[in-house]
């Protein structure tokens, strides 16, 4: 019996040692993530080099930027050292050069992507498409305190959105221009989906600010199925941490869904959108999902 106990002790020790070795090995492997690994799932959009620095611009899908929500990823490389900058303080500014005037669009600050060393991200909500004589220009700025380390800019093509409607601009009952863009669900599924959207208003031609504490009512419908809808949807409310609107939409089957919207201000005054009734089959503002 004691022999058995001794054997058991050795066996346990063996297991512990082996387990420790395996875990430490795998930890080592995790550490060797290169800058290239961090963007391996992304599509390169552009590389802009000026002085000692190169800006690498990526996004998740191929093709041009589109009118509406665009997520942009950035890496900055110091060409003198050959290393990617891990603590860059980055900012940007989009500007539409129209033939008669220029304007900006809603956009976020740039922040580090969690659990990466070299990757930064932000988004634009482009509000119009570019064309042969009118173009979007994005200026990137890398600063250290008051010193500008690098400043680059490039022109981008923004295509009109041809797919399902995920962006709407409208003039509210308060006569303010609003810009509403759907972020999630990016891959809708049958069942309950988290919804995330951004709502901005125009302050002036160059200033767009997130709107706080409004409510966006959602009413998902299937026009093909006698305007079938689902129960227990959760209207979008403002989340100050992400400065976005969040809620839940229930999809009872695959196919084409129209998410009818009503935007209400903080005092519940309807600014835009209509409730669905027997005669009103769709709201004037909506998103579309198809999967």
């Amino acid at each position: 019996m004691s022999l058995l106990n001794t054997k058991f002790k050795y066996f346990t020790l063996f297991i512990i040692v082996t387990a420790t070795l395996i875990t430490s090995c795998s930890k080592d492997e995790v550490k060797v993530v290169t800058a290239q690994d961090e963007v391996s799932a992304l599509q390169p959009v552009d590389t802009i080099t000026k002085g000692n620095y190169s800006f690498y611009i990526f996004k998740k899908d191929t093709g041009d930027f589109v009118v509406g929500y665009n997520e942009v990823y950035i890496q900055v490389k110091n060409n003198a050292t050959g290393k990617y900058v891990e603590d860059a303080n980055l900012s940007w500014k989009p500007l539409m050069h129209m033939t008669s005037m220029s304007h900006a669009c809603p956009y976020s600050a740039i922040s580090k992507v969690a659990n990466t060393n070299t990757l930064y991200k932000g988004y634009f909500i482009f509000i119009m498409a570019s064309n042969s004589s009118e173009y979007w220009e994005i200026a990137y700025n890398y600063v250290n305190g008051n010193d500008t380390i690098a400043k680059v800019s490039n022109q981008v093509t923004v295509a009109a959105s041809t797919g399902k409607v995920r962006y709407k601009s409208f003039k509210g009952a308060d006569n303010i221009s609003y810009f509403l863009a759907l972020v999630e669900p990016s891959k809708p599924q049958v069942g309950t989906n988290d919804v995330k959207a951004y709502l901005y208003k125009k302050v002036d031609m160059l200033t767009f600010s997130p709107v706080e504490n409004y409510t966006i009512q959602i009413d998902p419908r299937m026009p093909d199925m006698d305007n079938h809808t689902s129960p227990n949807n959760v209207n979008l409310t403002y989340d100050s941490f992400t400065q976005s609107y969040q809620g839940k939409v229930n999809l009872t089957m695959t196919g084409y869904w129209k998410i009818n919207l009503i935007v209400q201000d903080a005092s519940n005054t309807v600014l835009k959108g209509e409730a669905i009734t027997g005669t009103t089959t769709a709201s004037s503002i909506y998103f579309e999902l198809e999967f």
């Binding site: 049958v190 299937m222 093909d224 199925m225 009872t252 089957m253 695959t254 196919g255 084409y256 198809e290 999967f291």
Partner: peptide
């Protein structure tokens, strides 16, 4: 699986 009259739309499945 339901097929919309609109051939561009994806089928509805449940």
């Amino acid at each position: 699986t339901m097929y919309s009259k609109n051939p561009d739309e994806k089928p509805m499945f449940m």
